[in-house]
């Protein structure tokens, strides 16, 4: 896979835009998935994932071909997601509807530390609950959890993607898991 990608990158560097389309095809699902799990919203995920690919294209001259392209594009996408989450924070309105739910407003999220009523839980699909709890993780834990358990990357790759020492990745993984455990233990 990496050899195909490197051949395509050489074509892109020569100015062939169509070769870039093939690279996008190879990674689009992974990157979209990452963005969706980070942001919890399809529309925003599409927006950010596309921006990640466009940025990668613009900066392709700066890509070191001895490294993995996948790590590079994951890094761009993760950083864009974290930026988006940070910018989004002040936009929360308590009476706004929670994405992916019917009639659930932010008021219900305030109380999410306490257990949700059984009937409400039953109404939400299990996967939506899990996604919601992933979205409630602080973004630095969210990134490592998503990269590890959804994108199935190794700790070494995650440390490369996030540009963090391995030890820091492990600590965040540890805290992220504990955080999730508390949120999901009653399911």
């Amino acid at each position: 896979m990496e050899t195909i990608v490197n051949a395509r990158i050489k074509q892109v560097l020569k100015g062939d835009q169509n070769a870039y389309g093939e690279i996008v095809e190879l990674y689009k699902d992974k990157i979209f998935q990452l963005c969706y799990r980070m942001l919890g919203n399809r529309h925003e995920a599409e927006d950010v994932a596309q921006e990640a690919f466009i940025r990668a294209y613009i900066n392709i001259h700066g890509f070191n071909q001895s490294k993995k392209f996948s790590s590079w594009i994951y890094r761009i996408a993760t950083n864009l997601c974290i930026d988006r989450i940070r910018k989004k924070k002040p936009d929360y309105f308590l009476d706004a509807e929670v994405p992916g739910t019917e009639g659930l407003t932010m008021y219900s999220q305030i109380a999410s530390d306490t257990d949700m009523p059984e009937d409400q839980l039953a109404r939400m699909e299990l996967q939506e609950v899990v996604q919601k709890e992933i979205s409630n993780l602080p973004e630095k834990y969210r990134a490592v959890i998503v990269l590890k358990y959804i994108e199935e990357l190794s700790l070494n790759e995650i440390s490369e993607i996030l540009d963090l020492p391995l030890g820091t990745v492990k600590t965040r993984m540890h805290r992220g898991r504990e955080n999730l455990r508390k949120r999901l233990k009653n399911l």
Binding site: Q17, G21, F32, E46, A49
Partner: peptide
């Protein structure tokens, strides 16, 4: 509980990018 939380996260269905995803990017390249 830790293992259960991990299993829940891993169980979320793998989703695919929308149909016109690549086209949208190609149209917006410089």
């Amino acid at each position: 509980e830790l293992k259960k939380a991990i299993a829940f996260v891993q169980s979320t269905a793998h989703i695919k990018a929308p149909d016109n995803f690549t086209m949208g990017i190609m149209a917006n390249l410089p």
